[in-house]
Design a protein around this nucleic acid. Structure first.
Lengths: 105, 105
DNA sequence: ACAGGTACTTTGCTATGCAAGGTACCTTCT
DNA sequence: AGAAGGTACCTTGCATAGCAAAGTACCTGT
């Protein structure tokens, strides 16, 4: 899958997942990897960014298998950002599809 | 408009325009700028890439206003690439929309 | 003890878009 | 003639974000 297409979109996907329930990086990658193909090298810097921007907060939870998990929770600012991203995304989609004439429902 | 979203997509848009009719860089920017917002600093390196990859060929045409225009014509390989890109794009779309649940018709 | 799964993290690389600057030609207005 | 503004080309340097690869550490099963 083309790397470039994902630029900027993965962030939105991660936020969307966190909107449903708190999660930790490793789980997020496992989930998204099925559909969008992403790797660990991508997620950790991304999560750091989200945290630095105050979109998510974290808390540690002991795991019975492996090291403790760093859970991420979507914060209010993160939800706002997610919604802004969604509307930007669907606007962008519309424009691009107008140009390339891709009208797959 | 978010820069990152365009990564990889602009190339497809340019090829899609060239599928309709030959064009030159300045005109392409003018056209696309309305919907996707792009600048000259983006198009010239991009066109160079397309040419180097053998997706387009060029020919010069004198202009009655300004320097000669470098027209680009979509080649067979470019058309193939465009079609591959389109299918990759709509596949990617589907996956992302499944995740973010953006069902705007 | 070793293999393998879980989970975290960092380093260096790559691709692409963009702002800013530059060149040059033509027309129009002063 | 000179200045301004549109057309059209091009390059340099920067910022961003994804990824492969490597490393650490913990736990379970063989």
């Amino acid at each position: 899958m083309k790397t470039q297409l994902k630029k900027g979109v993965l962030e939105m996907c991660v936020l969307a997942l966190l909107e449903q329930h708190d999660s930790y990086a490793y789980e997020i990658v496992s989930t998204l990897a099925d559909s969008v193909e992403m790797s660990e090298g991508t997620i950790y810097p991304l999560m750091r960014r989200l945290q630095n921007d105050g979109l998510v907060s974290t808390y540690l939870v002991e795991s019975d298998a492996g090291p403790p998990r760093k859970y991420y929770r979507l914060e209010a600012k993160g939800l706002e950002t997610l919604q802004a991203m969604k509307s930007e995304w669907s606007g962008f989609l519309a424009e691009v599809n107008k140009i390339v004439g891709a009208n797959k429902s």
